[in-house]
Deep mutational scan, measured.
Amino acid sequence: MATGGRRGAAAAPLLVAVAALLLGAAGHLYPGEVCPGMDIRNNLTRLHELENCSVIEGHLQILLMFKTRPEDFRDLSFPKLIMITDYLLLFRVYGLESLKDLFPNLTVIRGSRLFFNYALVIFEMVHLKELGLYNLMNITRGSVRIEKNNELCYLATIDWSRILDSVEDNYIVLNKDDNEECGDICPGTAKGKTNCPATVINGQFVERCWTHSHCQKVCPTICKSHGCTAEGLCCHSECLGNCSQPDDPTKCVACRNFYLDGRCVETCPPPYYHFQDWRCVNFSFCQDLHHKCKNSRRQGCHQYVIHNNKCIPECPSGYTMNSSNLLCTPCLGPCPKVCHLLEGEKTIDSVTSAQELRGCTVINGSLIINIRGGNNLAAELEANLGLIEEISGYLKIRRSYALVSLSFFRKLRLIRGETLEIGNYSFYALDNQNLRQLWDWSKHNLTITQGKLFFHYNPKLCLSEIHKMEEVSGTKGRQERNDIALKTNGDQASCENELLKFSYIRTSFDKI
């Protein structure tokens, strides 16, 4: 039985969820670079991206490699990797027998973001014989899940209580170790020597080791999670996991709180800001991140802002960003909400898709409305799209047979046209069989910064309504002859009103 693990408890099935942008060198404390989270699957090609990484700022997932063999891993080693800020997950990587050479110096898994409450997941690794993470000293947050690894031993010899604050939620089941077939031998045991430290858990006094050649490092209890030197002297209180010299914040392997210019500090002093819960960055760093993602459509890219001495992905609820200094300031009234469309555009074809934009005031991208039916549609669209004030790209209304009016965009005031449909149009209306009105132009103002209007096959939309939009939106004169079809717009509506004058002759039985 794995020490510190839980057996036999019912657990939810383990679901495996399925960018080499360097964020800056980590400095003297770390020998390499800070790398983003990685999802490495199918083959070993991307694994080489770990070569210079000291910190993975995010998670590391290595999974679904069915053609790899043990010899493929023999020359692979990433000794610079010290810390993973989120979680480490391995799933069905064939041929991998140990992690001792792959990650010989991995010391800390912070667990800032977890995989279903777990910071370390080893699942269905069919050839893994031992973990071998002999320098792993601290899992700051989260638990361990090690399950269905039929060859995995050296679990009962690990004292997880020396690595985690609590072992109650560890789930370590259905491994070879369960069948008591392992016969784990710690260093020196074969020669009758006791080389590794022994600890007591559940009444068992057991030597602690990761492999037959690597003991588990056990520091004096007084050192807590700070770690200790090879001689057993406690590291500085700002260290986490390990250090090369005692009581020196510049000799830590990793930091308990924050890293700044080669030393570990309790908090980031001005003019620095907390970033990702582990390091200090200056304003320029946060500003660069903001600008890199301002026009990016890459998933996970955030326009970072500053709030409460932190550089964070977005302002919290009730705050909006001051564009001059990136500071989050309290909103006066309802907060603006910028919604970034991942692929640059979004099609609204149902109430469900409209709900995804609920509360958005600025759309960074283009909207395509293609709704053919739905219950209580006008009210639903207004509830979900009615706060949109600005669209950076274009607005396209296409084959939306259920629409009679666009009044559900009740606050839309600006279409920038930074991206144009077919390279020309910022407003595009095609084949809307029941569209009769755009907006009530006596109450609604709309500016279209650039781009043209396109109207074709809107049989109940009168040309007068379209011409009014040209005047109000500032697009009059931009359109070419064929942009607004004269014969297919309003051709099934009563669009022309003329005053009919009647004269009559009164007659009676005795007068003409």
Rank of each mutant, 00 (worst) to 15 (best):
T45F: 04
T68R: 14
L60Y: 00
V108H: 11
E207N: 01
H212Q: 14
K148W: 03
N42M: 10
S324K: 14
F78Y: 11
N135L: 02
G333A: 02
K217E: 14
L174N: 11
G227N: 04
C328F: 03
N242K: 06
P79D: 04
H291Y: 15
V108R: 05
N42T: 12
S284N: 13
F258C: 06
L174W: 06
T320I: 05
Q303F: 12
R69Q: 12
S225G: 07
Y171L: 08
F285S: 05
G111E: 00
M137I: 05
K67T: 06
N42E: 14
L96F: 02
H59C: 12
T194A: 07
L63G: 13
S244P: 04
L327I: 10
F275P: 01
C335L: 04
K224L: 10
N282M: 07
T194P: 12
C186I: 09
V253Q: 05
D86Y: 01
P36G: 15
L332R: 07
T140K: 14
R41I: 09
N308F: 11
G227D: 05
N105L: 02
N42V: 07
H214S: 13
R145A: 13
G132V: 01
E207L: 11
P271V: 05
L120H: 01
E49C: 11
L63Q: 07
E207W: 14
D72R: 02
P270L: 10
E57I: 07
S161I: 05
D178S: 08
E97L: 05
Y304T: 14
N309D: 07
L50I: 07
K191S: 09
N135A: 12
P330D: 14
P249M: 06
C315N: 01
R279A: 09
H290M: 12
Q287P: 06
A254L: 13
N202W: 09
L133S: 05
Q276Y: 08
E130M: 14
I40Q: 02
E168I: 07
N170F: 09
C153P: 00
H127L: 03
E207S: 06
F283V: 11
R256P: 02
H48L: 12
I185A: 03
G37K: 03
K176V: 05
H59L: 01
C35L: 00
V34N: 04
K100S: 14
N179A: 10
K217S: 10
V305G: 07
E57C: 03
A190R: 12
T157E: 14
C315S: 07
G262R: 04
P197M: 10
L136K: 01
S112T: 12
F115G: 00
V305W: 03
T107L: 05
I62R: 00
D248E: 04
G142S: 02
C286T: 13
P104G: 01
R263H: 07
G183D: 15
C255T: 00
L327S: 04
N135G: 14
N135S: 08
L240T: 15
T320G: 05
L60G: 00
Y319V: 03
G262I: 02
M65C: 02
N242H: 10
D159I: 10
V93I: 03
P187H: 04
D248P: 01
Y134D: 13
P197T: 11
F258H: 04
G241P: 01
A198M: 08
V218I: 14
Y259I: 11
C196P: 11
V281M: 02
C264F: 01
G132A: 07
H212S: 04
E314P: 08
Q204N: 14
K251L: 08
R256N: 11
S284I: 03
S324W: 14
V218S: 11
S166R: 06
G241Y: 04
N149I: 01
N282T: 07
M65G: 05
Q299T: 07
P79T: 06
L60F: 02
T194L: 14
D178E: 13
W160M: 11
F78S: 02
T189K: 04
V121K: 00
P246Q: 15
L131R: 01
L102R: 00
N150Y: 05
K251I: 03
K80W: 07
L155F: 08
N117G: 13
M65E: 13
A198C: 11
G111H: 01
F115H: 02
Q303E: 15
Y87L: 00
L136G: 00
P271M: 06
P334S: 11
L90C: 11
E231P: 13
L136M: 01
V265N: 02
G203I: 04
D277H: 14
P70K: 09
V55S: 02
D247I: 02
C252Q: 00
Y154A: 10
Y118P: 00
K294M: 07
D72A: 09
L64Y: 11
R69L: 05
E97Y: 08
R145H: 13
I163K: 02
Y94T: 03
L332Q: 10
R298W: 12
T85A: 03
H226D: 10
H28Q: 08
I312M: 10
R297C: 09
E57N: 10
D101L: 11
G95Q: 11
R162F: 08
E33K: 09
R263S: 07
P269G: 12
Y304N: 06
N242P: 10
L327W: 03
